[in-house]
Design a protein around this nucleic acid. Structure first.
Length: 490
RNA sequence: GGCCCCGUGGUGCAACGGUUAGCACGCGGCCCUUUCAAGGCCGAAAUACGGGUUCGAUUCCCGUCGGGGCUACCA
């Protein structure tokens, strides 16, 4: 029993700021977070910013913002690798001293390019290069004038084994593991030693942070033996590994820009609910073991298990994400939806403070009325705009469809008069007034109903008409009806 | 090229040697209806292919094919 197991597992999510937080990273973060919550563990955020060339420090804020939006709060960090260089260099020196690593004087270009740069995967020239094993390993540098990098001395003639919670027992013969670089050769002439590579940085930090479970994308599976070797060389206990199947685009290739929105931020902007997004993401590579899919986050935490993670890559299916969003929009207790709608209205400049105060009941009821017809948060400020503002446009297609009959202006004028003088303002009174008028005029009630809807909310789509009447109030209904009359001729 | 992983309808998941192969999204139809949604009902749609093992394979083994990953002084 180590002290760490007594305190629960320690896991981490370690993005590198070379881009925004994408859906694959978000799923990895989510699984780490769920596991930590489920097991009463600690979730640590670590920024892997050791690649000075590709690093974009300004992207860190966006990544943290996406994490917060997703509700994936971290217990420790963010820890920046760029601020822990001494740690990695010390580890490099230790390995060097123990002869578990050696100085490599080969020029970097010797290993650059080749098939490693071939991203297309199909066609192209394939290199036949074997595993890296240069003469520097035996103390015979090719070019002693070169600034040396530190390479790991892979122990040959044996095999490396580890257990993966998802993929099971893994075994590779060490001959297939190259002498990977631990610390890059120094860039600047004066620099003492170089920057750590991913392999070294990740392992040194995971040891230092006492990480018990490494949960990450399956793209790291093949590199894990190297890290197992590193843990041992550093005299540390090897953590448990759980590699997650990858998330692919609709064509089953790695998700990229051409597959549409891949950043978490873009889904935030589009108006998805974070909980719906979590629910959807969680079902990519995992299931509760039965057919239930609508699982609120508290339920996810209760049922999540790494043992149930699948080994099959999953395709990101946007229509299903949208379905989840509509489900949450409709099934959440309406109070939980209010803050989300409020920020949407604020964003659109439609929000009014009284809706959170004296008119809270009205606001709640209106949101409740509108939500069965919404798919994304901006629907509240777009097609439902007329419920929150007196300035709105008439949708051209709605006019075309429901204002065709030339008798309509006259009839709607009469309807406005009738509504204005109604002794009572309630659902049935309004309905009777309208249906009565339709009968007198010898037209179907639907004709008036549809035309009136367009007149008072500008849309062909809205909640049932008389409920809309009540929410808007008599004054607005009558005013909007009269205001629409001139527009109907145009 | 080498090493490795994966393969149930179009998509996400169930079935972990015995089911008429289940659920959901999407798709088509019907119902409801005052528009559009939501909801209800019905339907089309899958075990990649070929060999084994077994009384019996979606399930176990081998091969093929397909997809993916790694093979960087990227992470």
């Amino acid at each position: 029993m180590t002290s760490s197991t007594l305190k629960g597992p320690r896991v981490r999510f370690a993005p590198s700021p070379t881009g925004y937080l994408h859906v694959g990273g978000a799923r990895t973060a989510l699984f780490n977070w769920l596991f930590a919550k489920r097991e009463g563990g600690t979730f640590i955020l670590r920024v892997e910013d050791t690649d000075v060339e590709r690093n974009r420090p300004e992207l860190v804020d966006g990544i943290l913002e996406s994490m917060r939006w997703l509700g994936l709060g971290w217990d420790e960090g963010p820890v920046f690798q760029s601020q822990r260089m001494a740690l990695y260099r010390a580890a490099g020196e230790r390995l060097l001293a123990a002869s578990a690593a050696y100085l490599c004087y080969c020029p970097p270009e010797r290993y650059a390019g080749g098939d490693a740069a071939d991203e297309s995967g199909a066609g192209g020239a394939h290199a036949v290069r074997r595993v890296t094993r240069c003469s520097c390993r035996e103390g015979r540098p090719m070019d002693p004038n070169q600034k040396p990098a530190i390479r790991f001395r892979t122990p040959l003639g044996t095999t490396t084994v580890f257990e993966d919670i998802v993929f099971g027992r893994r075994e590779v013969t060490n001959e297939e593991i190259e002498d990977f670089v631990l610390l890059r050769s120094p860039k600047e002439a004066g620099a003492e030693s170089g920057l750590p590579t991913y392999q070294l940085g990740a392992v040194v930090d995971d040891i230092d942070m006492r990480i018990t479970h490494v949960i990450r994308g399956a793209d790291h599976l093949s590199n894990t033996p190297k890290q197992v070797l590193l843990y041992r060389a550093l005299g540390a206990e090897v953590p448990a590994f759980a590699h997650l199947p990858l998330i692919l685009g609709a064509d089953r290739t790695r998700m990229s820009k051409r597959h549409g929105a891949t950043s978490v931020a873009s889904y935030h902007e589009e108006g998805f609910l974070p909980e719906a997004f979590r629910n959807f993401l969680c079902l990519l590579g995992w299931s509760a073991g039965n057919d239930t899919e609508f699982l609120r986050t508290s339920e996810l935490v209760k049922r999540f298990s790494l043992d149930a993670v699948s080994r099959t890559n999953a395709v990101f299916d946007r229509p299903k994400l949208e379905w989840f969003n509509t489900q949450y929009l409709q099934q959440l207790p309406v109070e939980e939806l209010l803050p989300e709608v409020q920020s949407e209205l604020e964003r659109a400049g439609l929000w009014r403070a009284e809706w959170a105060g004296a008119e809270r009941a009205w606001f709640t009821h209106t949101v409740d009325l509108l939500r069965p017809r919404t798919r994304l948060l901006p629907d509240f400020s777009h097609w439902a705009r007329a419920f929150f503002s007196d300035t709105f446009d008439y949708d051209p297609q709605a006019k075309e469809k429901f204002w065709k009959d030339e008798r309509l202006p006259a009839m709607l004028g009469k309807l406005a008069d009738a509504l204005a003088t109604l002794p009572e303002w309630n659902h049935d009174a309004c309905e009777h007034a309208l249906r009565g008028l339709a009968e007198v005029e010898g037209v179907k009630a639907g004709l008036l109903i549809n035309a009136t809807r367009v007149a008072i909310v500008g849309q062909a789509v809205a909640p049932p008409l008389f409920e809309t009447f009540l929410v808007l109030g008599r004054q607005k209904v009558v005013e909007r009806l009269r205001r629409a009359l001139p527009a109907m001729h145009a």
